[in-house]
Design a binder for these strands. Structure first.
Lengths: 203, 203, 203, 203
DNA sequence: GATGAATGAGTGTTCATTCAT
DNA sequence: GATGAATGAACACTCATTCAT
């Protein structure tokens, strides 16, 4: 009786569609990802997608939301369980400039949405809050390290800003300059420099 | 008889079309820029564009080429005429993290092509050579500064890499985090940190 | 338990939906009125509309029915309570060519259904019976006036036909020619002419 | 060599497409006439229609234009070649209330566009100028008849207005009330009444 | 009674491109 | 060099409708 109804619930269908959207974006890029292609991958009718998301624009936004939520909810960056602050500092620096961290989301899609943020103010806004969240988290950690004398920073917020700047610059570098060297080696220099700055009171 | 035709050859027409393409990209983005729109702006027939560029793909590539050439040919970054090395160093650092420098090309288009480099290997390749050129130029300058004892760097190429990394990260920052502060103030911190790293032998 | 449900039966819901349909038709026209839009206005699910009317076709028909019933049930045209026949005649003529009378139903919707009667025989049929009813009513009134010597008409049915013809023509006129004059002034000429014809025995 | 190119000229193609549009409107009505159907009838690609008309809206307008032009250019109504004014008057009245005259354009399409004039101000405007043209032509003829003592009219423009009103009302009547009688018999009463009004100085 | 899932046909429109002139 | 005709695929989106719940 319910042979044909594959899924009956928006809570299940929507993520499924977004996942398909994500895959199509990886394969075909922004301009190449159409509702039809997304539907084809799922073997459903294109209009069903509109049924759930009302418009492609909305769907884009919900995908951004999903990816960012996924990013924010990662336990990866949470180092507060490490009690020894020296150790915690090392671990955090290690994570921030690791390949794994930078590649949670497919870099093409990643850049694609960065690009879209220039065109869609709602996407831009979402990214902004995400980056503010990240910076503030880092600033609070830096405050701890500062108090413990591990680093020497006069303005933690500025320092956190700088860290995010360098982290994102690293993404670029990986795309455009890392060709002759493995990411890790290359990221190591970057990490070293940031730590150096934090420790020697560049801020 | 037909001497007065608006433009008789490709050398004049092609840049004109590419300029129009650039303007359309600013206004409409990657997905929104079509041959028709470009033709409309110039009040010419869309077919004429294909006549010159054979395909849209080619035209994209030629636009990348044009923008990068424009970037590379800028006298801005060339500080070799400043004889006093200390002064030259200051000037170079100032330029690299200036608003003017970061905004030579419309940032939306800028990011757009960065994004496209994930999808088109020819675009990627072009960017890579550009960044290599930039890094090598910086490395050669750093070598001079190093010799003069202005900075203290063990590996000039690595340091140059780092500078490019930070510079590009700054672009991001301007888009996503600078909302509460003016670019210049914000870029100053970044510059200070880079100079600090170079001087205190972080490399 | 479910006593408080907004509306529990078709007798309440259907007119509510038809009213919404009418409003949507005013705003969006024939081609623009869809079940979704009607449902949106009422903040109900589109399926519910189908649930009540089975098909859009039916709903259209029921709307025609409703509008015509509303038209027929108007007390406006009923002048039989005026005992003085001379007075009654004047009043009837006044009403028939009044703005108020011609605008009981939104003229756009009005014309829309006239147009639809060319495509849907059931709508046509409904209009026909309405116009026959109107003509017959007028004919019976004319008979009274004739007997009283107020008008001089040999064939009351023909005369009534003529009156309806002119009345409907007036609708057109209001749309296409009245631009330079107010409806009332303009309708006055028409009324004068009809009265003239009735009195001077044109029929 | 030119086997496949069926028509190469807009001057030929556009009327051909409009004719097809007209036929589809007759068959399918306003809501039913789509670009695809129009293209199918001509065995051309739908996008070719957009190539010529840019949008469906434009095409509608051009069809109105075509039909009205066709209407206006008809020699039918031009009676100025009849020198005897009495005879000319009779002929004009005969034409105005003839079946042939009222059915130059398919009545469904006719009404369709009348309806559309409620929704599209450009269509409305076109109809208005057409009706003004018609009224002014009639008014000028009435002036001649008046001078010759054939009719007795104090305000020719008003009278012409009235004639147009009745003529258009007749279209309605033919649709909604003529069922029991042939158009001509029925139109005869109308004509008689109008002539009566003109002759006995109703105006 | 009311909602949501799902369908599938259909809409106007845009697109890059080819070909003949 | 430049234009217009023509194509055909693709696009996002809307539609009325059915069915299960």
């Amino acid at each position: 009786m319910e042979i044909m109804r594959r899924n009956q619930n928006a809570d299940l269908r929507k993520p499924e569609i977004l996942e398909s959207f994500y895959q199509v974006m990886i394969k075909e890029g922004i301009e190449g990802s159409s509702i039809s292609k997304i539907a084809n991958r799922l073997d459903i009718h294109p209009s069903l997608i509109l049924h759930y998301f009302k418009s492609k624009e909305n769907m884009k936004l919900e995908l951004v939301e999903l990816l960012i939520k996924k990013f924010e909810s990662r336990q990866m960056i949470d180092v507060s369980h490490i009690e020894d602050l020296e150790e915690r500092f090392s671990k955090l620096m290690e994570i921030l400039f690791s390949f794994q961290w930078s590649r949670t989301v497919d870099p093409g899609v990643h850049f694609g949405f960065y690009y879209l943020s220039f065109r869609d103010p709602r996407i831009l806004k979402r990214f902004k809050t995400m980056f503010v969240w990240l910076r503030d988290y880092l600033a609070s950690q830096l405050a701890d390290f500062n108090r413990a004398g591990i680093i020497c920073v006069s303005n933690e917020k500025e320092a956190a800003d700088y860290i995010v700047t360098v982290m994102e610059g690293l993404e670029f570098h990986a795309q455009f300059l890392a060709h002759d060297r493995p990411f890790e080696e290359f990221a190591q220099t970057t990490r070293k420099m940031v730590i150096h700055g934090l420790k020697t009171g560049g801020f």
